Simulated scan of single mutants.
Amino acid sequence: MTPLQRRALLATLAAALAGGLPAAHAQGRYPDKPITFVVPFQAGSATDQLARALAQSITEQTKQTVVVENKAGASGMPAAQQVARAAPDGYTVFITTNTTHAANEHLFKKLSYDPVKDFAPVTGLGKGGQVLVVRPDAPYKTVADLVAAAKKTPGRLSFGSGSASSRVAGEMFKQLSGTDILHVPYKSNPGAITDLLGGQIDLMITDTATGLPQVRAGKLKPLGFSTQKRSPQLPDVPTLDEAGVKGYDMSYWFAAYVPAGTPAPVVNGLQELLVAAVKSAPAKTFFDTSGAEAWTTTPAELARFQASESQKWGRVIKAAGIEPE
């Protein structure tokens, strides 16, 4: 092989390698140091599970460490504020949900962050439904039994929630079923699950990633699914609408954001990394076992989606009779 042929071969290999990697990484600009994923919920939550799967994939793609930092509590506001104040360089990434970026502005009179002005959208990550669960020894076998018990003793039964999705799901259930059930707030859904298992609360409507393992282990009993379509993981469980709570439809979503002012090339490079990560084996395992489904977007598509979701959650929260705190 002549020197000229050798140089041509090396150039071809370099081009092929660059073509197999996100543009920003191939050019060696981003990332060139560890990345932090900030998650607004506890370890073990659905968002945490997805963040860790994505972190594993991005570490494999880039050979850079991705640290997952859980900052739970106050409906994700401290975590959102932390990311909003971080350096806009692409190394602090908010792996979050509709709680912080569509619901909180309608649940609270004042936020410590602006869900639009303080963040640059990167990509959607996934969507999912929720499941109404009770303990196996609960005296009700169906949603109708639960509704009847709640109406017989107003205010006696309680439901837990550790996210806006779970909170609004419970409030919507009360509103559409005509029941009075006490709300008990938690920092994250796994904490509510712990108290449900221990008998401190009576029920909850939780994301499938948190609830399914307990259902499969026989520790919790599913009564209804939150969307208009049954879950493939729970084909024998009726939707809440089918079970008699007419008009019930509630889902949730995951997405990634960075601080406002992050340069567009960095946002685009991160978006490519995350889209590839959502398609990776670790993320596929999460989606296959959690009942959620993969969903990715461009930054502009996520911005438009977030705006429409904010309006939707505002309508749902108002219809559920929830007063801003």
Score class of each variant (00 low, 15 high):
66 V>A: 13
67 V>P: 00
67 V>F: 13
67 V>T: 15
69 E>H: 12
69 E>Q: 13
70 N>P: 00
70 N>S: 04
71 K>I: 05
71 K>L: 08
71 K>F: 01
72 A>C: 02
72 A>N: 03
72 A>I: 00
73 G>L: 11
73 G>I: 11
73 G>E: 07
73 G>W: 10
74 A>L: 07
74 A>I: 06
74 A>S: 13
74 A>K: 07
76 G>R: 09
76 G>F: 14
76 G>K: 11
76 G>Q: 01
77 M>G: 04
78 P>I: 15
78 P>V: 14
79 A>E: 03
79 A>N: 10
81 Q>W: 02
82 Q>F: 04
82 Q>R: 13
82 Q>K: 01
83 V>S: 05
83 V>A: 05
83 V>P: 02
83 V>R: 01
83 V>N: 07
84 A>H: 03
84 A>N: 02
85 R>N: 09
85 R>I: 09
86 A>R: 05
86 A>L: 04
87 A>Q: 05
88 P>D: 06
88 P>E: 04
89 D>P: 01
89 D>W: 12
90 G>Q: 03
90 G>Y: 04
90 G>F: 10
91 Y>A: 12
91 Y>C: 11
92 T>H: 02
93 V>S: 01
94 F>L: 14
94 F>P: 02
94 F>E: 05
95 I>Q: 11
95 I>W: 08
95 I>T: 06
97 T>N: 14
97 T>M: 09
98 N>R: 00
98 N>S: 14
98 N>Q: 04
99 T>Q: 05
100 T>R: 05
100 T>S: 13
100 T>H: 03
101 H>A: 00
101 H>Y: 03
101 H>C: 10
101 H>V: 09
102 A>I: 09
102 A>Y: 11
103 A>F: 13
104 N>H: 01
104 N>W: 01
104 N>L: 04
104 N>Y: 02
104 N>C: 05
106 H>N: 15
107 L>I: 12
107 L>F: 12
108 F>S: 07
108 F>Y: 08
109 K>Q: 14
110 K>P: 08
110 K>D: 13
110 K>I: 09
